[in-house]
Amino acid sequence: MLLLLLLLLLLIKSSLGFKTFGFGFFFSSAWDPLHDVFGALPFIYGTIMSSLIALLIALPLGLSCSIYLAEISHSKFKEHIATMIDLLAAIPSVVYGLWGIFVLAPALGGPSLLTGGVILSIMLLPTITAISREVIQAVPHNLRESALALGATKWETFKLAVFGPALSGIVGAVILGLGRALGETMAVTMVIGNRPAISPSLFAPAYTLASVIANEFAEATSEVNLSVLVELGLILLVITVIVNGIARILVWKTTGHKK
């Protein structure tokens, strides 16, 4: 309901932009506020690509961390690792951004799509790790024992009895992470280079939907410019909803609705 109201508001506020540029807006790479010429494609590209890069790095890393913490390690050391990862979640994104500017960007050859993706992946890591760890630990003990009793090794037990039941939760963790990545503004804005261009190179600067809205909203002079920025916000919302939808279908498919 709230979502519908929000959608309605965004639709109204962006109607001018939509009237002016039509569907071409989504496929155009032009961005010239001075002459009121706008296109959304570079931002869509930047948002999706930076999030994908982030996920590509954070998912395997976070998942292995959570498996290690939940299944393998029995030492006290593991609590420290868990706390450290949780702490990562508490760091404000501006601080990530600063670290990105001074450490990460120089290391990766300046502000770029890749730098943005990497910063995002570090921000996603705690979310994915913490939630995955929790859902893995929540898998009933008797399922593990059933697998062990069949002669499964530790790893086979995980594959047989734990991963399946935990999967929907892990997908949930990924969606949450992805939602955060798509909408993350500050840290990304500081390191992605903020250039509305689509380059085949990951080392080239890029721009995201959230970043351009944050950067230009205060300075938007013309009516059209303003409405276009709202339209970008609308696109961001729609992408998020689609991602959620896909994830839900994935969960639905993997939880007992086979054949």
Binding site: L143, A147, A149, G164
Partner: peptide, 12 residues
């Protein structure tokens, strides 16, 4: 082999 008190088929 072993069978437990509560039936534990792998749920997925």
């Amino acid at each position: 082999g072993m069978v437990f008190q509560k039936p534990t088929p792998f749920p997925t």
